[in-house]
Design a binder for these strands. Structure first.
Lengths: 294, 294
DNA sequence: CTACAGCTATAACCGATAGCTATGGACGTC
DNA sequence: GACGTCCATAGCTATCGGTTATAGCTGTAG
């Protein structure tokens, strides 16, 4: 009875929300996709898991019987992954990053740990996962742009850099020559967005909070820096990015300009709050925290 | 860190066999498919699970750490599926079948149990799984053609019918008018075969044991009766089938003829040897066993 | 030392799957 | 009775898991 753990997560989410719509939101998938997958799971099991009634969804007896086992399986797998990783050679640490971090942040620290014989494996994860692998247990720590869902609860964050947000424009854009632009001027521009599964991060880089309720125009979605700059360079849209990243990715066909009227962005090192390994704590301690915002 | 339980089975199989080739055989998939899936799993985890050396495959420390957890997860899930099914209403039984069983075998018995208020859900499973869902815990009992892997060990079988094997031919075939043919005459015919994942069942219906080592010519593979008869009717090959099934599926473009020189085939009711539910025992007891072979 | 045999990895291809958007249909609510 | 909410269906596309064919490595036999 092979099953995809993803489908079990889906089932658990619906069981907890008792609503397909809300569960779909939580899972960052569309409601039909969720509906279909759950139906497929029911078909595979040979019995329904939910009773879909007028204004409510309820677990069937079979669903109720399955739920705890599903939770256990998911937790068990997550734990097993973590245990397997730490079974590797001596002091080894898996560190996730979403984009090139640069800024000489990690170079020195990583170098120092490598010299001491630690095995630091950097894992470039794409933007589908705003925790860069932390949530699923894939990494021990990650460089993330805030906001990261779970920080303050099961995750701890240490802000390393606080920067203004700039906008990347195609070289021929009418703002390309400006010394800076006001965010209000950009509201009608088509934006290049992160994938919807990136959750709050997508909203943050669309500047949703600063739009005063006006829907952003999403030109297209991109899930890697290359794709983003390709799209911007081709004139398909503009995109917000951190000042440091604007310098980190110089391209002839893209121009970056500071934006007024936006909260700054924060790059943080994130790790699990219940992390027990001394190595992780030591790694985190090796970074200097950015001074609090002005 | 979503994962497909199938991939965990694959990992466990390789870990047990310490050979991709043998594990692939055991899993009834091709060796490259297995290789690829395991590599993908390793990539997802971010560390290798096996050391591939000259003439041997060995678990890495991480692989060794993961193995017991994986075994446990698979066992736990299988058990959970079974528990969920039995959490359904009162006396309910999931029964698998691979083809229409017919022969008035189940009609009377199923009817009797239904009248007593039991909920018998028949599940038509395809030939990919020779245990018709028993192995994965998807059903409580199944009508299967022998041989079924596991019978005698974790599965118990009760032979219900023993029949001669016939051959289905396209209507225009040179043997179509015969009263019977000798299997030796069929050795060079292209055969319609079950999918390779059907395991020993595929061999049985190709008559491999009676070919004296000569490789069968497989015209094409089919995974449902409709496909098989479509293929035979179209002249793409011939196929062995049970005498009873030859009568069960009358088609104008297909002719069936008895075959000499083949062991008979056996249709059995199969259930788990460690089955604890009274309902299953009672269900099994309701069928008459076929007299032992002559 | 060359040829062969056994084993894993790669390539090219193909059908099934999981995702999306748009839309339909059922049922409370106002 | 119109509307809003929520789940299901339809139609489409990209990715994935499978296949066969073949390459590459390595120990063994002649």
């Amino acid at each position: 009875m092979d099953v995809h753990v993803r489908d079990l997560r889906y089932f658990a989410a619906v069981a907890e929300e008792l609503s397909f719509t809300r569960a779909a939101e939580r899972l960052h998938v569309s409601q039909p996709a969720l509906s279909k997958q759950v139906r497929a799971l029911e078909r595979q099991l040979g019995h329904p898991l939910f009773e879909r009634r007028a204004r409510s969804v309820a677990l069937t007896p079979q669903g109720a019987a399955l739920l705890p086992a599903v939770r256990e399986l998911i937790a068990g797998w997550t734990e097993a992954v973590r245990a397997a990783r730490t079974a590797g050679p001596a002091e080894s640490l898996a560190v996730g990053m979403q984009t090139a971090v640069g800024r000489d942040l990690q170079r020195e620290v990583l170098g120092r740990f490598r010299e001491r014989g630690w095995l630091i494996s950097l894992r470039l994860v794409n933007w589908e996962d705003p925790t860069a692998g932390l949530a699923g247990g894939g990494v021990d720590a990650a460089f993330c742009w805030l906001p990261v869902p779970g920080v303050g609860a099961e995750l701890t964050a240490k802000v390393l850099v606080r920067e203004d947000r700039w906008v990347a424009l195609p070289a021929g854009h009418r703002f390309a020559g400006r010394a800076e632009v006001d965010f209000a001027e950009l509201l009608d521009e088509p934006f290049v967005a992160l994938p919807r599964s990136a959750g709050p991060l997508r909203e943050f880089w669309l500047g949703t909070a600063e739009r005063g309720g006006r829907e952003p125009v999403v030109g297209l979605e991109a899930s890697s820096p290359e794709e983003v700059f390709e799209a911007v360079g081709a004139g398909l849209g503009v995109v917000l990015l951190a000042e440091g990243n604007a310098r980190l990715y110089p391209r002839p066909d893209v121009v970056s300009v500071p934006v007024r009227g936006l909260a700054p962005c924060e790059l943080a090192l994130v790790w699990r709050a219940d992390e027990g390994r001394r190595a992780v704590a030591e790694f985190a301690a090796a970074f200097r925290e950015a001074p609090p915002a002005a």
